[in-house]
Amino acid sequence: MITKDSKTHATTQDQRKARLAAELRANLLKRKAQARSRRTGAADERPDGIAAADKDDPA
């Protein structure tokens, strides 16, 4: 006999599995995009990095 609690528990598990699957797909797409950008040799446009390397005056 299936009770209301077991249905809720199953639904919660299904929702969790779907959410984790979606996050996994998003992570995979992100990693593939990173690999493609590294393979093409595009310059890294991020502003972060070692600030001391940009200075002309050594400290």
Rank of each mutant, 00 (worst) to 15 (best):
M1T: 04
M1P: 01
M1K: 04
M1Y: 10
M1G: 07
M1A: 06
I2E: 05
I2F: 01
I2Q: 06
I2T: 01
T3L: 02
T3Q: 01
T3A: 00
K4I: 07
K4D: 04
K4L: 00
D5Q: 14
D5K: 10
D5L: 08
S6R: 09
K7I: 13
T8E: 07
T8R: 07
H9C: 02
H9T: 07
H9V: 06
T11H: 06
T11G: 01
Q13K: 10
D14E: 08
D14Q: 13
Q15C: 06
Q15Y: 00
Q15T: 08
Q15D: 03
R16A: 08
R16M: 12
K17L: 08
K17F: 07
K17D: 13
A18Q: 10
R19E: 11
R19I: 02
L20E: 04
L20C: 02
L20N: 11
A22Q: 11
A22T: 03
E23N: 11
E23P: 02
E23Y: 07
E23Q: 11
L24G: 08
A26R: 04
A26N: 06
N27V: 02
N27C: 02
N27R: 13
L29D: 14
L29Y: 00
K30F: 00
K30S: 02
K30Y: 05
K30N: 01
R31V: 09
R31Y: 01
K32T: 02
K32R: 14
K32H: 03
K32L: 07
A33D: 09
A33M: 09
Q34R: 14
Q34D: 13
Q34K: 13
A35D: 06
A35T: 13
A35E: 09
R36A: 11
S37K: 14
R38I: 00
R38Y: 10
R38K: 15
R38Q: 09
R39F: 12
R39I: 06
T40N: 13
T40L: 09
G41R: 01
G41K: 03
G41F: 03
G41Q: 02
A42N: 13
A42V: 11
A42E: 14
A43F: 08
D44Y: 10
E45T: 12
R46C: 00
R46D: 05
R46F: 09
P47Y: 08
P47R: 12
P47F: 03
P47Q: 12
D48C: 03
D48E: 12
G49M: 05
G49N: 08
I50K: 10
I50R: 09
I50H: 04
A51Y: 15
A51K: 14
A51T: 15
A51D: 13
A52S: 15
A53F: 10
D54K: 15
K55Q: 15
D56L: 15
P58W: 04
P58Q: 06
